[in-house]
């Protein structure tokens, strides 16, 4: 797997030079009690890349995603996003845990789209989208609304601005959720199985929005079971199993001619 890893092994990645990867993970570990969910993840995601992570359930792919924006705290190794160490502040040889405010600040530039949408049910589609910009970025409501309407247009839901989430279909909710994360002007978007909770006929409308997004050069890490999407849109595909990246590389190679037996078994199982 190391042959496809970009060679970025600086001794002090806290001060990364330009052109460095947007996300850098080094030997990232995560334990839930005695269970090791991540057993040393190494990966570098350059700016503008669409990385798709596939793998069986329980392989740790969602956990890795959640570590990137600190919904989970890592138990070993290190993570950097935009050259900034995730969750810690380094002084000399000491790492200080960040406080609530600093963690919140680090999360701002990372958007996340959830499997179960997690729209705020007490707010309309428009209010869901402007909540972050107005409350967190302190943007004037009129500017935020203008941008939100443009985003709704972009995901094809301009007419749903005043609908509550409960009045929208799953696919529509997920598109609003994507617009909501885009409203924060993120540098990185994380997708955690964004189509897994959708009825089959609604999957394509969400994938289309993601496809369009990828074409704008957005850096995306997508945990997905949509192998077709991974092949067509992904720049690289990582196959994870039992807390490790088993295979990483060009989508066509990984998905059609994988080197590892485990990858091949998984892909065959998904296809049939």
């Amino acid at each position: 797997m190391t042959d496809t890893l970009p060679q970025v092994r600086t001794t002090d990645p806290d001060h990364l030079a330009a052109g460095a990867p947007l996300v850098l993970a080094e030997r990232v570990e995560k334990h839930f009690g005695p269970l090791k969910v991540l057993k040393g993840i190494d990966i570098a995601v350059p700016k503008g890349e669409v990385l798709c992570i596939i793998g069986p359930s329980g392989s740790g792919k969602s956990t890795f995603l959640r570590c990137i924006n600190q919904l989970e705290r890592i138990d070993g190794g290190a993570l950097w996003v935009s050259g900034e160490r995730v969750g810690y502040h380094r002084e000399g040889n000491k790492l200080y845990e960040l406080d609530d405010k600093a963690i919140a600040r680090q999360r701002r530039s990372i958007g996340m789209v959830f499997q179960r949408f997690n729209l705020f049910p007490h707010l309309t589609a428009l209010q869901n989208i402007i909540e972050g910009p107005v409350q967190v970025l302190r943007e004037p409501a009129t500017d935020a609304t203008k941008r939100a309407l443009a985003l709704l247009e972009r995901v094809g839901l301009a007419d749903k601005r005043d609908a509550y989430p409960s009045q929208l279909s799953g696919g529509q909710q997920q598109r609003v959720a994507i617009a909501r994360s885009l409203a924060m002007r993120p540098e990185l978007l994380l997708f955690d199985e964004p189509t897994s909770a959708l009825d089959p006929e609604l999957v394509s409308e969400v994938l289309k929005v993601m496809r369009d997004l990828a074409e704008t050069g957005m850096t995306m890490i997508c945990v997905t079971h949509e192998l077709g999407f991974a092949r067509d849109v992904g720049h690289r595909v990582a196959f994870m199993d039992q807390g490790q990246i088993v295979e990483l590389g060009d989508p066509r190679t990984v998905l059609t001619d994988p080197r590892e037996a485990r990858t091949r078994a998984f892909i065959n199982a998904v296809r049939h």
Binding site: N69, D100, R107, I110, N118, L119, E131, G132, Q135, S181
Partner: peptide, 27 residues
């Protein structure tokens, strides 16, 4: 209130107090 609501609010970069006041308490 569903745990996903906490996570979505955290992901937007809300602090603990903002999240309770704006997202969790109204629900």
């Amino acid at each position: 209130v569903d745990n996903g609501q906490y996570e979505a609010a955290q992901t937007l970069g809300m602090t603990r107090l903002q999240l309770l006041r704006r997202i969790i308490m109204p629900q």
